[in-house]
Design a protein around this nucleic acid. Structure first.
Length: 194
DNA sequence: GACAAGATTCGCT
DNA sequence: GCGAATCTTGTCG
């Protein structure tokens, strides 16, 4: 097992970490059952300077407090009252940077993901869908990636190519909405599912 | 205490 | 392609 160390998360640049997370493997063990996926799409949220970030302008509320706790924990929140979105908190204590996991490629136990998705496809594309497939809900907010039921490993899988674009669904962030903070990886072979 | 809006998904037209 | 679903959070009074 090659769990990512705290030093991976506590670097200061979430854009770099968002790119580095591509090809890493995210695991969850919920109800004593393992599932895993190869991270294939991420978005960076650049703390207080980023209008799209919940902590823009240094805002501190009960919800955003999590973002200030220092890298290496999970930030999950409910979007549109329906969907749970999974973020990786990065940087050090006091700096509210985060990376949103938007999609992954099923790597282990895709049959359980299909069950959790109620037979629907896609299995693991889209931020709300990612949380469903991994079995996560807001009750898993604040969990540590170093010592809990969710963690990320490095299996030395490198993307074959990486596409960069503007983030999705953040039009309200005005000029920051067009920043190139979204990263989409393709792999070779394209389907590594076990 | 009330209200508007949201880092989305799904089903139907 | 469009609109409903659904509820927490943040802001304002």
């Amino acid at each position: 097992m090659n769990k990512l160390p705290l030093s991976f998360y506590q670097r200061d640049n979430p854009v770099e970490i968002a790119q580095n997370l591509l090809g890493k493997i995210v695991w969850t063990c919920i109800n004593n059952t393992l599932v895993a996926g190869i991270i294939s799409e991420t978005e960076a949220y650049y703390g207080i300077e980023d209008r799209a970030c919940h902590a823009y302008g240094g805002r501190r509320t009960p919800r955003t407090e999590m973002l200030y706790q220092g890298g290496g924990v999970a930030y999950l929140y409910l979007c549109y009252g329906i969907h749970t979105l999974l973020n990786v908190v990065t940087s050090c204590k006091g700096t509210p940077h985060a990376v949103l996991i938007r999609s992954f490629i099923p790597y282990h136990n895709s049959s359980l993901m299909l069950e959790r998705r109620k037979g629907r496809y896609p299995l693991s594309q889209g931020p709300g869908v990612v949380s469903q497939a991994l079995g996560l809900s807001i009750t898993h907010n604040s969990l540590s990636f170093l010592d809990s039921v969710i963690w990320i490993e490095d299996h030395q899988i490198m993307p074959a190519s990486v596409q960069v674009s503007a983030r999705i669904g953040v039009e309200y962030a005005k000029e920051d909405a067009s920043l190139p903070y979204r990263f989409i990886a393709t792999f070779s072979p394209p389907d590594l599912t076990t």
